[in-house]
Design a protein around this nucleic acid. Structure first.
Lengths: 223, 223
DNA sequence: ACATTAATGATAGTAATACTATTATTTAAA
DNA sequence: TTTAAATAATAGTATTACTATCATTAATGT
């Protein structure tokens, strides 16, 4: 069975759905590559158009601006993460194992699901670590939030919070703990890569570090 | 006694030291106001120059670009935070009270120290919450880091880590916990202001929320 | 007090960015 | 096979992110 995975991203994010045309999919694929290469600040639609051999105006038909395009990519990622989480938590009954599975997912490169997915998951992962907070850390956050485009993040957060509560019914801050571990997963990965003195990473545990730290944190708080 | 507080920010951050001239100080003061008003993305040197009634070129004599200016402001903030921390931890012996004092400082508006400080601390606080991570979440982070401009953040982190270790010698991740609570302090404040569903904030505890959550987190992990 | 240096103001200019608009051409749908 | 929709190609504008020049003002040293 050759399943094509695709996720519906909120329509408010784009002008034309990039999933529904070759050009659209090429835009997303090349954006992921180029944002990863240049960083979001230096990334422009012009450069993307040149990279793709298309016109700048074509990209503007899909996205209002590069911030929306990033929002699309990040939303897509959260939807994919949500899907993987459902998939991996399936049939698990032990809440501790569920939490460990979640933490593992949040702190590692996403497994590449055979079939579908022509996006570079390694790059996507790096983009999420470095750029994801830029989608909401903007002046217009309240305005943007009204169109519900942050829903995928909120839903993932709520889902993790449910598992937290199932593990420890008395814990008072399941959603905050959830958003904190998501963000900390990114930060600790970024710091261990670029600013290791902000962490306790060692050369030995470099890849596992964020996971170890967050597991210790979560089970420390939840008991 | 009328003490003027000032902090030496690493010289690599600026071209000309803004603390050493009226124009320089006006640049910083107005930047804080304007970044708070417009957000960092919409903030430009041109707008700042108009606001100040000076020429754009004058500002470029102090800072290479707006990223460096933000880095200056954020570095200044960390130095000020470090100073306040020393001040408030003075004479405290109970490590638990020390940690609570730290968490309180990280999650509240900084107290305005009489004398000195013509910067708007309320605004500065908001800028740190919303913009501070943008100084390191950039492609050039390794390059920038070489000039030691992130030292104030690292030193604050190390200082907090010392207290964490003093409180619990067995805890394996003092620096990561330290950077995590600093970042979480910002995120949880931002989320409770703008995206409350990512938190467990209630209308009642809105101002105290981040503090309560992080206290619970820290003493949960450290025992 | 005067000369020298340094800082600022005023103005101009350039390349790149972030778009919008127009029209011709290709592709897809009715 | 007609019609509509999507794309390519091209142009154009306002703003951004700078750099350069030169006159003026302020600060400093002797």
């Amino acid at each position: 069975m050759d399943i094509k995975i695709s996720f519906k991203v909120n329509e408010a994010v784009f002008l034309r759905d990039p999933e529904k045309s070759d050009l659209g999919r090429t835009i997303i694929k090349n954006s992921i590559d180029l944002i990863n290469n240049l960083g979001f600040e230096a990334f422009t639609f012009k450069k993307l158009a040149i990279e793709m051999g298309t016109a700048e105006a074509s990209i503007y038909r899909y996205f209002e601006n590069k911030h929306r395009l990033l929002l699309y990519i990040i939303s897509w990622y959260w939807k994919y993460m949500d899907f993987l989480l459902d998939f991996q938590l399936q049939n698990l009954t032990d809440q501790k194992i569920k939490l460990k599975t979640i933490i593992r997912l949040l702190t590692h490169e996403l497994p590449i699901h055979t079939g579908g997915l022509d996006y570079n998951i390694k790059f996507l992962n790096q983009i999420v670590i470095t750029e994801s907070s830029k989608v909401y850390l903007v002046k217009e956050v309240n305005e943007i939030n009204k169109s519900e485009v942050f829903k995928p993040y909120k839903e993932l957060c709520a889902k993790i919070a449910t598992v937290i509560t199932a593990y420890n019914k008395k814990y008072a801050y399941p959603k905050s703990l959830s958003s904190t571990i998501i963000e900390a997963a990114h930060h600790q990965q970024f710091f261990s890569q670029h600013l290791p003195r902000l962490t306790d990473v060692t050369p030995k545990n470099k890849n596992e570090f964020a996971c170890l730290f967050i597991e210790n944190l979560v089970f420390g708080v939840l008991g």
